[in-house]
């Protein structure tokens, strides 16, 4: 009985519901898929606004002539790449890419070099990029280096003299003075390069952190003259650093590091061709414009730290 009643009820509902069919149809139609449209933003040149990867293509080397010329005196562009292994759970690599302007004067086998630091880039550690402010780089003192070239022409060995790079401190004896300790914020050797009232130099770490440090980097280069007249080779490099304070603890953490000299490299090419304004003098600004075409910065690769010293 119940089944029959339900059936007759459904039949009645259907008969009466047919009148509402146009309404149901209209409801369906109201939800119809619209014609696809585009937005109001045009495509941009892929080089503008971040469409590209932002990286410059690698290019060839520098100027005319080179180490095969009758004299090596003149202006050179030098790029060094230092590898450092940072000890955390495993070792990770961090790299420093430097561009220098070198005024070189040759006296037989002696090469008198006056190196000006033009640019310094560091690869990030744990995603945090350390940036050395350009004014600090610009204010870095000229570095005088006495190097040796044995012979001449392709394959001639090059042995660079010791070079000391220092930030936030002025040593009396740049080789022998000890580094200050973390607590030595009143050490008279410290230089507040930015006049920000903080001890030493201020580096920026990531988007929102700064560290106040004293740093000494000691290095020598060794290599040989290449067929194209450039110098290429490796180097020995050591960084000593004291972090006095930081705006946030996470960027002030000091980790154990070691030099990874097997992964160091340098290249030095004649720079006269980079005199863009043709004023007879090659400036750091002109070198920065072509620095990556001489030697692109290498990405850090932790595998380079697997080979223990």
């Amino acid at each position: 009985m119940a089944h029959g009643a339900l059936e007759s009820c459904l039949r009645a509902a259907w008969r009466k519901g047919r009148a509402l069919a146009p309404l149901a149809l209209a409801t369906f139609l109201a939800a119809c898929e619209p014609e696809p449209t585009g937005g109001v933003f045009p495509d941009l040149d892929s080089q503008v606004g971040g469409g590209s990867d932002g990286k410059a293509d690698g290019a060839g080397g520098g100027g005319d002539g080179g180490a095969g010329s009758s004299t090596l005196s003149g202006t050179w562009a030098q790029i060094t790449e230092w590898s450092t292994c940072v000890k955390v759970a495993d070792e990770i690599e961090t790299r420093a890419w430097r561009l220098l302007r070198v005024e070189l004067k040759q006296e037989g086998g002696k090469l008198h070099e006056k190196r000006t630091l033009c640019e310094l880039r560091l690869t990030p550690i744990f995603g945090l990029m350390t940036v050395v402010p350009q004014p600090l780089i610009d204010a870095h003192p000229l570095m005088t280096v006495e190097s040796v070239l044995v012979g001449q022409g392709e394959g001639a060995p090059y042995l660079g003299g010791p070079e000391i790079q220092q930030f936030g401190i002025a040593f009396k004896d740049i080789y022998g003075d000890p580094m200050p300790a973390k607590a030595d914020v009143d050490d008279p050797r410290l230089v507040d390069s930015e006049n920000d009232g903080k001890p030493g130099a201020t580096f920026h770490v990531g988007p929102s952190c700064s560290i106040h440090i004293a740093q000494r980097e000691s290095a020598t280069l060794h290599g040989s003259v290449q067929a194209d007249g450039s110098f290429r080779g490796g180097g020995v490099h050591l960084t000593e650093q004291t972090v006095f304070s930081s705006t946030k603890a996470i960027c002030g953490s000091q980790f154990s590091t070691r030099a990874n000299d097997g992964a160091n490299s340098f290249v030095m090419v004649r720079a006269e061709a980079f005199d863009a304004d043709k004023n007879g003098e090659v400036s750091c600004a002109e070198l920065r414009a072509v620095g990556e075409s001489i030697a692109k910065p290498m990405a850090a690769d932790d595998k380079r730290c697997l080979a223990k010293p």
Partner: peptide, 22 residues
């Protein structure tokens, strides 16, 4: 139901500068 996205125009992405990407 559907949310049909309009195609992204070129040139507005956050750039890939490797580890240096902001």
């Amino acid at each position: 139901v559907a949310i049909r996205m309009k195609p992204r125009p070129a040139g507005y992405d956050l750039p890939d500068l490797g580890n240096a990407s902001p």
